[in-house]
Amino acid sequence: MSVVIDTNVAVVANGKHEVASDDCIERCIDALIAAQQGVVLVDDGFLIFDEYQRHLSHAGQPGVGDAFFKWLWSNQANPSHCRQVEITPIDPAGRVFQEFPDDPDLEKFDRDDRKFVAVALASGETPDILNASDTDWWTFRESLTRYGIQTQFLCQELMAD
């Protein structure tokens, strides 16, 4: 099983989301633990790692999200647990990607989250993208599904209709 994990999952697992319930936090913790039994997909340009680093601790403490980040960092060269997928940034900021669908319905999808979609599409697999609290994934779920993107909403109660 391969997954792509939006940073917000680890942040919620750390208890750093102001409205996430205990159940939501527990689902994020469980998802991160389960992900360690499979393969986590990241990009080869370290854009995902850079984002994780801005929000999580390399020390692996004090939260489960931090522990996950330390585990992933330690296993980045272990293909049994981490696979770096080549994606092609087409802007200097690394927020627009050749692999991201050129679709007017996705024009307003968060540019910071496009790297996760690009990794999923470029992977040659059909990984779930794990999301806890980012409503953009919910808003654009139907458009993303047309391209084979499956988002697992760990805290659906945080999504707005």
Rank of each mutant, 00 (worst) to 15 (best):
R111T: 14
V119A: 06
P89A: 00
T88H: 14
L130A: 02
S133H: 07
E86N: 15
R114H: 01
E99D: 09
C82G: 03
L130Q: 00
C82R: 01
D102A: 14
V85D: 05
H81I: 11
R83Y: 05
D134G: 08
V96Q: 13
D128V: 07
N131M: 11
G94Q: 06
D113A: 09
D134W: 03
E125R: 07
T126H: 09
F100G: 00
I129C: 00
D102H: 14
D112T: 15
A122N: 05
E99V: 01
A122V: 06
D91R: 01
P101A: 10
A120Y: 03
T126A: 12
P101V: 15
P104W: 12
E125A: 14
A122E: 01
C82K: 00
S123F: 01
F109H: 07
T126I: 10
D112W: 14
T126N: 10
I87F: 07
E125Y: 02
V117F: 02
G94H: 08
D102R: 15
V96D: 15
F116K: 03
P79D: 05
D128W: 12
D103S: 12
I87R: 02
I129N: 00
G124C: 06
I129Q: 00
N131Y: 05
P101W: 06
D91Q: 09
R83G: 08
C82L: 02
R111H: 11
E99C: 07
P92V: 13
P127H: 11
D134F: 04
V85T: 09
Q98S: 13
F116H: 05
D112C: 13
F97M: 03
V85E: 10
L106A: 03
P89H: 03
C82Y: 09
P89I: 04
L121M: 11
D134P: 04
V96Y: 11
S80H: 14
Q98L: 14
R95P: 07
Q84A: 15
R83I: 12
A93T: 14
C82W: 07
D128P: 13
A122G: 12
G94E: 11
I90T: 08
K108T: 10
